[in-house]
């Protein structure tokens, strides 16, 4: 089932969805958004590709295998959590820097954003892992387990 309309639409939607997921991730601290929904949103274009084209096409779009993405995300989140310990503060204490921006604004950057990035990666990894697992080509082996 290859639909030209879906394929064409995917081509245009893909970058938009990816951008939107990043947008959701970074705005999350102040407006609705965050790592969970960002990660889900990032998985959506991958799923779309898997549907419109092929699982392998979708798989090649990911920079890493899902299981590695997942590990990377978990390591990021855990690393950020433990990081505070090395600065002599309790686990998971956030650290912030305020960068002055041209035009008078201030960019508030903190470790919770990194933690959110970890969540983003884990969610992306989990969803794509499940999608790829289900979409693996070998329907012959998918006989019904009668018991």
């Amino acid at each position: 089932m290859k639909s030209l309309i879906l394929q064409t639409a995917t081509r245009y939607l893909f970058p938009l969805l990816v951008l939107y997921s990043v947008f959701l991730l970074v705005r999350g601290h102040h407006e609705p958004g965050g790592g969970f929904i960002g990660g889900l949103m990032a998985a959506a274009p991958i799923a779309l590709c898997a549907l419109a084209y092929d699982v392998d096409v979708a798989r090649n779009l990911l920079p890493l295998r899902p299981i590695r993405l997942l590990a990377l995300g978990l390591a990021t989140a855990a690393g950020v959590s433990i990081g505070a310990l090395f600065m002599g503060r309790p686990l998971l204490t956030g650290s912030w820097v305020e960068l002055p921006m041209p035009g008078g604004g201030v960019l508030d950057l903190g470790t919770p954003l990194l933690f959110d990035l970890g969540i983003y990666l884990v969610v992306l990894g989990v969803v794509t892992q499940i999608i790829f697992s289900l979409a693996t080509k070998s329907p012959l082996h998918w006989e019904r387990d009668e018991s």
């Binding site: 601290h29 958004g33 508030d108 959110d116």
Partner: peptide, 11 residues
């Protein structure tokens, strides 16, 4: 440093 309380709670 966050105005979105849901997210602040989460992260």
């Amino acid at each position: 440093h966050g105005r979105n309380i849901v997210n602040v709670i989460l992260v």
